[in-house]
């Protein structure tokens, strides 16, 4: 711990026992440490002095009178505001429930359509999974370059020659709709395989 932190811990009352004794010895024996302590503690004292502000006392008298007037006026308003707040809160909750995607859709549209997943699919050494990808899903891919070679596919049209890939090795124009036509069972099968192979 550096000297500054040690001093701040002391000022914050965080030092106890052996640590405190050691701090006090150091403060007594080291002029540099003692100077650092003085600097920090006088800075904090000067800040405390800024809080010694003289307020106008008339404010407090008028404020009390104002409070009593407000207190007499406020019951009706205070009943209305919580009621409106409750209705708004209920509306927001209802909106979230109604607009929340179904679990099945989350699985298909969010969990599976990620670059990480695609990257994982490419790297997996699992024949069953690779067969599944090639047999049932490959026709929906639109990709090119190294990926064509890797999966032994025909080049896609239009984008050949563009080798831009992101940090996961996924081409920027990768078609994320690839799993749209897969059935729920296929998705489940893929998902389970990924779980078994500890990709997910």
């Amino acid at each position: 711990m550096n000297d500054k932190d040690l001093i701040l811990k002391y000022l914050g009352g965080l030092l106890e026992g052996e640590e405190l004794e050691s701090f006090e010895r150091k403060l007594e024996n080291s002029p540099e440490f003692s100077a650092e302590y003085e600097k920090i503690s006088s800075g904090l004292k000067s800040l405390k002095a800024t809080a010694d502000v003289k307020y106008d006392n008339r404010y407090f008298a008028s404020s009390l009178a104002k409070m009593k007037t407000r207190s007499a006026d406020s019951p009706k308003r205070r009943r209305l505001i919580p009621a409106l707040s409750a209705v708004s809160f209920a509306a927001v909750i209802l909106f979230f429930f109604l607009s929340a995607p179904l679990e099945e859709n989350i699985l298909i549209n969010e969990n599976l359509f990620t670059d990480e997943l695609y990257s994982a699919l490419l790297s997996v050494e699992n024949d069953e999974l690779n067969d599944f990808i090639k047999r049932d899903m490959v026709s929906h891919y639109s990709y090119y370059g190294d990926l064509e070679t890797e999966l032994e596919l025909e080049p896609g049209d239009g984008e050949a020659g563009n080798n831009s890939v992101n940090e996961y090795g996924v081409p920027y124009n990768y078609n994320y709709d690839v799993l749209n036509d897969a059935s729920t069972e296929e998705i489940d099968q893929l998902y389970n395989t990924l779980l078994e192979t500890k990709i997910l």
Binding site: L8, G12, I40, G43
Partner: peptide, 17 residues
Amino acid sequence: LKANYFHALKKVTELME
């Protein structure tokens, strides 16, 4: 609370410096 106060002291001294 002590931990919060320590971090506050640290930040305040930095700001003053």
